[in-house]
Write a protein that binds this DNA or RNA. Structure first.
Lengths: 173, 173
DNA sequence: GCGCTTGAGTTGCGAAATGCAACGAAGACC
DNA sequence: GGTCTTCGTTGCATTTCGCAACTCAAGCGC
């Protein structure tokens, strides 16, 4: 955990939340555990058999996920031997990242059709590909993108709104 | 590399491309290197200084990314000491996954505003959050989703189209 | 040519993470 | 009380990571 964290907050003057995400999810089994959790796995033994992961590692990974607030640990009332691991909202919000990874693997791997498939509950159609979108929701490709430093963004906040606001006082003077 | 790969292709009868993606990108520095690459870093020494990563690890990670077809290695013609590492299309298509992770880190980390920011080249507005969408592009939340086995999907292909097709013969009879 | 620098790695070795198998301990079950 | 479950922990071998020093080919100044 040493090196990576040290570098977390400065990348030649850049700032990035990516290392922060990686500190929580960058370890070998984290995403696999997350996936199992999304598939309804809740207990230690279930994870262990499903993933074929060493028990000590699983124990460690689950603790870490709990520490990071990605999963919640709860001793069950009706059988106090059992512990239930449940995704928190913070954990659930990793779904787009996980699905993006999975779709990438599907596209570029050896044509493995992943199962189970995530479908829209309304019509049971598989979901679409995870994409980047402009602020108005329009899908946007890599070539239509620029990396900008925060300082060189539109004067402050959303350009259009901002223009309206700043125009008002001038008119009032 | 042992355990994880063994389990890659069967998760109690499930199939998943996620482990495949993780095999390529699941190692400690892979995403950080990818991020640097997206930010215009191309040479060994640049990666090394930018990331403060050990040279042997960097060497190893770059080779592996090249092996996986995520980056391309090219010895430069005008100075044959220099090697240029360039993202391939396969690498570029990891952008949604990377941004999803980064946005998650931004949201749940200690309010770190990431820089540089990805903006729409057209209006220089920051891009929107990476989301899951239904097949028709409508944004879809976790609670509106179901996990379905491939076998229990709508009879085959798209439901609506399928319904039309299957209705026709019946009417014809 | 000859020393000097630069770019891209490699090597050796200690520290940390991972994997395996066996063990422990509390709670349920009869 | 004895046994079975569930969730871990412990000890030890293997693998990966991290650091610093070293190699080695290619350009550069003269």
């Amino acid at each position: 955990m040493g090196k990576l964290r040290e570098v977390l907050n400065d990348l030649h003057g850049d700032n990035c939340a990516l290392p922060l995400a990686l500190e929580a999810m960058g370890e070998r089994w984290s995403f696999m555990i997350l996936r199992a959790a999304f598939n309804g796995v809740h207990h230690f033994e279930e994870f262990q058999q499903e993933l074929n992961i060493a028990r000590n590692i699983l124990s460690n990974r689950l603790s870490r996920l709990v520490d990071h607030g990605i999963m919640a640990r709860e001793v069950m009332a009706e059988d106090r031997r059992k512990v239930r691991y449940q995704l928190t909202e913070k954990g659930i919000e990793l779904l787009p990242a996980m699905i993006a990874l999975r779709q990438w693997g599907e596209k570029w791997g050896a044509g493995v059709p992943s199962t189970p498939v995530l479908v829209d509950a309304r019509d049971e159609q598989p979901i679409g590909p995870v994409t980047l979108t402009a602020h108005d929701g329009r899908v946007i490709g890599y070539k239509e993108l620029l990396w900008k430093h925060r300082s060189e963004l539109q004067p402050l906040g959303q350009a259009r709104v901002r223009a309206d606001i700043s125009a008002a006082p001038v008119a009032a003077e």
